[in-house]
Every structure is written in structure tokens, then in C-alpha cells.
Design a protein around this nucleic acid. Structure first.
Lengths: 342, 342
DNA sequence: CTGAAAGCGCTAACAG
DNA sequence: CTGTTAGCGCTTTCAG
């Protein structure tokens, strides 16, 4: 198993002093003689002593780790959020441990257990699409474990949350399609039970209503947040007699599927049909035609969530009201929807 | 800090037996009476008892966690490799803890320390581009800590490695450009000190040599493995009097930069200039024109690396020769390079 | 079949 | 200023 790592005991023996003295010297306690302190520090350095974090963790029931659960790290949106989280956490001396639920409820439950049992100091989470029961979160939240939700938040639990203004972003996207002259605007939505899906759907409906455009359930098709699923859904949409001339997709991943279906059907973007997504992932600009989208401040979302969590960790018990930080989105118009020169 | 979690001590007290008996009953030891065993198990279940993994970890100096260090999870190639790793690890009862070096040497050193100190059971790593000193790996490897390198491997350390046949993949890509009628073939390479960069460069050179095509250092420009860096490099290349009519990019991320530069210069792909990348990331097919590439079996690479590592963990000391698993690549020809109908 | 005791590495009262 | 003791939660000899 390899050479044993050295402990304060080794240092104590070598120096003929007690382990507590070594411990105190290492932590630069004021009640240790300058001379002793120096000798300890020197030997520790020479021996390349490293405190055993596991022992610390057992002692304090804390780890300086914060757990993050996302559906998929392969999704660039989440990768960027994580970068934001790490940015703050690292600066505050926390290490970020990443977990993937793979959109699977069972896996999410396992991850939560792992995080709780391993004495992580807190949890940042964006819930899986298959999750409809929140008792695993409730369970640890009731025991005082710090949780902050981001993006795919859970309304049922009273704690801090960070999200974007999905309604507003969706409204703006739909409005944009209307401004470009679209008359029959469809929506490929995300899974129903996800709050972000519903909010985006509502924003879409509200814009149509405000502008007196036709609204119909036939124009709204549900899809998972994946290109494959969206491809299928869009095919159905395009096969209709009253084919839409504009599509607002609930995410860029969905928009990729729409994009493929439109290309496959031989329709021209944006003239025969205009398309806009949500998130503005890096690849949006690389598509052909480049995909319009609603940009989300992913990095900022990660930063904010991490800040709120660390606050919760450091000031436990302070039963102030839970904060819901709602970030602004930004419309990015590209060729997939730009019919007019603005 | 919330309700204390319950321990074997609680169970012991409740049942008026000793903790050791509880411990044994829980582990289904053969030397415990069926009756006692039943009562313990029942109470444990009723109380929702969970063993404290931190205590176990302190006791055994192991954690059932394996650490993985990648440059960036936002890179889909690594995200897929990780999925492969998780696939194997999860089935074997290990949890995968993901670390990012962000291509930063200092960060990589920190990650390695964390993994070693936290008593992770092993390390899977693809090294950062800025890493030129391998002593942090050497240090823990010398102490018997199990390490397996994948993709960006480190030759200096004698342990298992998983990579693809970079030379062969590069040769095939270059050969493909030659077959498509390219005469002046350039290469946008990755950082020099990365083995994969050098191997791909050599494959490129070998193909040109074999087919009697012109070879020149002017045709080879170095770039970081990022679109931005490649964009700059390609601009220089395209500004040359003897502009190339084919480019082999050392990775898809580099190819994205080449793609942008070519489009920016108003050149047509593949007729005026053909382009091929390396990795076949999902986005390659979505570009316009779709990007040709050399597919790497990323998932398989993850699986293989995890298997080798778990083997190393479970059979320590067995000083058999280190295995180098070299996986095959596959040419994926798309419109960015296909001039002829094959 | 079961209990008492020691110990993983470290810190924090409690004595000197 | 420094040492002794106890304990975080668990397993594992060693004694019954």
C-alpha cells in the first residue's frame, strides 16, 4: 500500500515532546514557546508533513468540501455554472466535488446521500428532469444541512435559490419572433414538471397574447432537453397542415434538434421558418445558420449560488428569509431568426 | 448544525449490548446469534442508521473514491471519457470524484495533493498543457499510490496508460486530404510538449513523406487546444503567399478556430481549402459545412482506464509490467473535406 | 456467542 | 509554556 504518511506523532517522538504541543505549534498557538515552535515547524517541513484531512473531518464533522449535483457536466451550461462555483469556492478555501445525476432520480438520491454521509459542508443542486419527489432534499434540509438550488430549482423547499428570469427571457424571445414578422409561432417546450419549462411556456404564451397572435395547444409540443427528443417533436410540428413559421425552443439543446429537423425538411431559415433557443451555449454561434438565443449568465449564476451557500454554511441558524436571486437574460439575435436588418 | 446522525453506539445503548456486537451484526458476522442479529438489523433500519464513511476512511486509509483530473469538463471529449469511467467505477462500488486542472499546473498539483491526502483509492489523470514537471505524480507513485494516465499521458512514469493511436489517426487524416486532391497541406498543431501533439505531428509528416507531398516547417503552426488560439494561428497561415489548400487540425477545438478563419477569409470549404479535425466531438456534425474528423473512442477510453485502475487498487504490489492500451481511431469524412463522391 | 480495550490522526479541555 | 486524557465512529484483536 505504499509508505505510511507521517503524522504529528512522528514529529512528537522525534522531538521528545507531546503530540498536543506539536499540534499547537503547527496551528501557531500563542501558548507555545518560540523556540519549540520553530523546531516543530522546521521538522514538519523537512518531513513534508501534511495533516490528515480525514481525521479532521471525523473530529469536526465537516470537510471543507461542497457538493454540486448537476444533470450532466457534458452540458456546457452546467460546465460554466460550475466554473463560477469553483471561482468563489476556491477563493474561500472550499473544494468543489462534482456529481452527475444523469437526469436519473435514483442516481440523484444516491448523490445526496453520499454528500450528506461524507460530511460535505453544503450542497448546490440543479435537479434532474425525472425527479418529482423531493423528500431526499427535504430530509437533509430538515436536519439543518445547507442547500442552495440553482437553475432547476425546487419551490417546495424553503432555502436560497438562484435562477434566471425565465418568463421574461421567453417573452423577449417570442416578441423577437413577432417583430421579425412571424405569424404562426410554435414552442418546443421542456418537460412539464420542471419549473423552468413551465415558466418559459408562460412567457411564450403571454407574448402571443399581448401581441394578439394566435395561441393554440397544437403549437406547443413537449420534448426532453435533448436534441434527439426535440428532433422527433419538431418533425411532427413541421408535418402539420398549418405549419409554423417561427419556433421558440425551450433550450439550445432542443433548438439543435429543431435546427436539424428544419434542415432535414428542406426549409430555409429564417425566411420560411425562424428559430430561437435559450441559453446561448458556445456552439450556438457555430451552427449554420448561427442560432439566435436567450443568453443566461451561467458563470454569474454559479458565483451567486456559491456565495449564498457559503454564507449559509458560515452563519448557521440565522433564520433570515430565504433569498431568491433572479438573474437577467439577454437576447442574442443571429441569422436563424433575423429576417430584417435592424 | 442540525440533528446528530445516529451511530452504532446509539443502537448498542438501546439494545443493552456492546458496540462491537452491533458492528459485527451489521457486517453479518458468522459469530453472532441469529436473534441478536435480527434485533440489531431491525433497529438499525428503523433508526435509518448509516455508517459514517469518514470513520471508515480513517480506519482503513481508503475511501472507495477514485479521483479523476481532467483539464476541463466543458470539453465534451473529457465529459464522455468521464461517463465511461463512471460506468465502470459505479458498477464496482467506487465513487468518482471529478477535478479540473483548468490547464493550470499549479491547480493540477493542488488537485493531486487533495486526492492523495484525502485518501482517495486511486487517480486517473489527463495532464494539463502547462505541465512540464511531473514530480507531483512521481511523488505519490513512488509511495505506491495507484495512477493510470489517459489521453494526455506521461511517459516518464511507469504505470498503466490508455491512449489512442494518435500517429495512425493523424496519418489517416492527412492521407484523406491527399486523396481528396489537396497538394499543399498544413497542420495546426497542439502545444509541443504534449505527447499527443507530437505524435499527431509525426503522423502528418509521415503521410506527406509517403505520398511525396511537399513538407515544410512553414506549413506547421502551433496553437493551444482552443478555438481562439487556433483562429489566430490560421489567419497567419491563410495570409501566406503559398496558401495551403488543406488543413489537418490537431483537435476539433483547433478545427473550430480554423473553420472560423476560413469562413472569415471568404474561402470555400472544401474546394478552396479542405479541413479535418481530431476527436469527432458532437458539435462537429453540426457545423457548416459539417466538420470531418478522426473519431476517438472516448467512452471506451474511460472504461479501460477505470478498469486498469481498479485492478491496480485491488491487486497492489503485483509488479507486472505496465500496460499501455492503445485504442483505434476512425476516419469520419464530412463536407468540410469531401471534394469527391467516394 | 459477546464484551472490553486499543487505535486510526487529530484537537480540546483539563491539569500542572 | 507543556503534558495527559478523552473522544470523533468504527473495527478488530484479545479475552472470556
Amino acid at each position: 500500500m505504499g509508505a505510511k504518511s507521517i503524522t504529528i506523532k512522528d514529529i512528537a517522538r522525534e522531538l521528545n515532546i507531546s503530540t498536543s504541543t506539536v499540534s499547537r505549534a503547527l496551528r501557531d498557538s500563542s501558548e507555545i514557546g518560540a523556540e519549540t515552535k520553530k523546531r516543530v515547524l522546521e521538522l514538519a517541513h523537512r518531513l513534508d508533513y501534511n495533516p490528515n484531512p480525514v481525521a479532521l473531518s471525523l473530529l469536526n464533522s465537516q470537510s471543507n468540501d461542497i457538493g454540486v449535483i448537476v444533470p450532466e457536466i457534458a452540458n456546457p451550461f452546467f460546465a460554466i455554472v460550475i466554473a463560477g462555483i469553483e471561482d468563489v469556492a476556491f477563493a474561500q478555501g472550499y473544494h468543489v466535488v462534482i456529481y452527475q445525476s444523469h437526469e436519473d432520480y435514483e442516481r440523484e438520491v444516491l448523490n445526496v446521500k453520499h454528500i450528506y454521509n461524507r460530511r460535505k459542508d453544503g450542497l448546490l443542486v440543479s435537479i434532474a428532469t425525472t425527479t418529482t419527489d423531493y423528500s431526499h432534499f427535504k430530509h437533509i434540509h430538515d436536519r439543518g444541512f445547507p442547500i442552495v438550488f440553482f437553475d432547476r430549482i425546487c419551490e417546495e423547499i424553503d432555502t436560497h435559490k438562484v435562477s434566471v428570469d425565465d418568463f421574461d427571457g421567453a417573452y423577449t424571445a417570442t416578441e423577437h419572433l413577432i417583430n421579425q414578422g412571424c405569424e404562426r409561432i410554435a414552442h418546443v417546450s421542456g418537460p412539464d414538471h420542471l419549473l423552468i419549462s413551465r415558466r418559459r411556456l408562460h412567457g411564450y404564451r403571454a407574448a402571443l397574447l399581448d401581441y394578439g397572435k394566435p395561441i393554440s395547444d397544437d403549437w406547443v409540443v413537449a420534448s426532453a432537453y435533448s436534441p434527439d427528443s426535440a428532433l422527433e417533436a419538431t418533425r411532427v410540428l413541421l408535418a402539420r397542415a398549418d405549419r409554423p413559421d417561427g419556433i421558440f425552443a425551450s433550450s439550445d439543446n432542443i433548438a439543435i434538434g429543431c435546427h436539424a429537423a428544419i434542415t432535414e425538411a428542406g426549409l430555409s431559415m429564417p425566411n420560411e421558418i425562424a428559430l430561437i433557443g435559450f441559453s446561448d451555449l458556445p456552439m450556438a454561434a457555430l451552427m449554420n445558420p448561427p442560432l439566435s438565443s436567450v443568453a443566461q449568465p451561467a458563470f454569474e449564476m454559479g458565483r451567486s449560488a456559491a456565495e449564498l451557500l457559503i454564507n449559509l454554511i458560515r452563519n448557521p441558524g440565522e433564520h433570515t428569509t430565504s433569498i431568491s436571486n433572479v438573474l437577467k437574460t439577454k437576447l442574442i439575435a443571429r441569422k436563424s431568426s433575423l429576417r430584417l436588418i435592424e
